[in-house]
């Protein structure tokens, strides 16, 4: 048997990655819609220790699916309890226009958040809807990256809509969560000319060839890794990159370096 590099050897033996992996798309907290065991900070931290993930960028499920303030407070508590291990996104729900900017200010100024998460699909609000403009203006002023859910055929956040949004708000760095799901090829084309867009990899269907297709057709510097845990398994998401047929250098960029650059620019402490 031959393995291509030390990352694969570590993963095959179940040993943590030897450099600090950054998970740029994670969540936290229990869900009503399905059972996820130990979705709290301690349960997540155990997985991070086993795999070598030094930092997880989290948005609270409650903030997305229910009350944004209650959820954002939960994410803040995880950051406080485990300093340096969790970096929260402030979830912005545009369905509460009178509250949303105040909530972002509270998260940034009182809790020290530096990033924003939006979920146009769950919030039934198209990315190009004016309701998001104030959120993107806030992000531009604060230098905050915005992680948005993107999904194939979604009338609220399909790739063409996400591309139009990124073009319109060129001063904001957008992380396209899931890289459009089944619309990856379209995402590669659309994001190619958008320097403010990063493609994020979390996927519940781990197609052979997906990572290789992406790295072969898009600048590796703009591909970042996320796991979507504690919904789906972080180790399985890590495995699809570690065992991809790409160089160890590219794997390290995707799993750590690219995210570190984004987070550092946003003011999130994340050096080793």
């Amino acid at each position: 048997m031959t393995l291509d590099g030390p990352l694969e050897s570590s993963a095959l033996a179940g040993k943590p990655m030897e450099f600090g992996v950054i998970d740029i798309h994670a969540h936290i907290g229990a869900l009503g819609i399905f059972h996820a065991p130990r979705p709290d900070a301690a349960g997540m931290l155990d997985v991070m220790e086993r795999t070598g993930v030094k930092l997880a960028c989290i948005s609270a499920n409650d903030a997305i699916l229910a009350d944004m303030a209650i959820g954002n407070d939960l994410a803040a508590a995880a950051m406080r309890k485990y300093p340096g291990r969790f970096a929260p996104y402030a979830v912005a729900n545009p369905n509460h226009p009178a509250r949303v900017i105040g909530e972002l200010k509270r998260c940034f100024d009182e809790h020290g958040f530096r990033m924003i998460k939006i979920h146009p699909s769950v919030h039934c609000t198209r990315l190009t809807d004016p309701a998001y403009d104030a959120v993107f203006d806030f992000a531009a002023r604060r230098g905050a990256p915005v992680l948005t859910h993107t999904w194939q055929g979604d009338e609220h956040c399909g790739i063409d809509i996400a591309a139009e949004t990124a073009q319109r708000h060129a001063g904001v760095s957008f992380l396209w969560g899931h890289s459009g799901g089944g619309e990856v090829r379209r995402a590669l084309e659309a994001a190619a000319g958008l320097a403010n867009v990063y493609l994020e990899l979390a996927a519940s269907q781990v197609w052979s060839g997906r990572i290789e297709t992406m790295t072969g057709n898009f600048p590796v510097e703009r591909i970042v890794w996320g796991s979507d845990f504690p919904f789906i398994s972080l180790p399985q998401q890590l495995g699809q990159v570690v065992f991809a047929r790409i160089s160890d250098e590219a794997k390290r960029m995707i799993l750590s370096d690219n995210a570190q650059r984004i987070l550092t620019a946003a003011g999130v402490p994340c050096s080793d």
């Binding site: 694969e8 993963a11 095959l12 033996a13 179940g14 155990d46 997985v47 086993r50 795999t51 269907q205 781990v206 197609w207 052979s208 060839g209 997906r210 990572i211 398994s233 972080l234 180790p235 399985q236 998401q237 890590l238 495995g239 699809q240 570690v242 065992f243 991809a244």
Partner: peptide, 24 residues
């Protein structure tokens, strides 16, 4: 579910599981 899926994902799901080596 290979070759449609990347088998490395499933492998890592087991090697990194929070269980004992014999269970793995």
């Amino acid at each position: 579910r290979c070759p449609l899926y990347n088998p490395g994902a499933a492998v890592a799901g087991v090697t990194y599981a929070g269980i004992g080596d014999e269970e793995k």
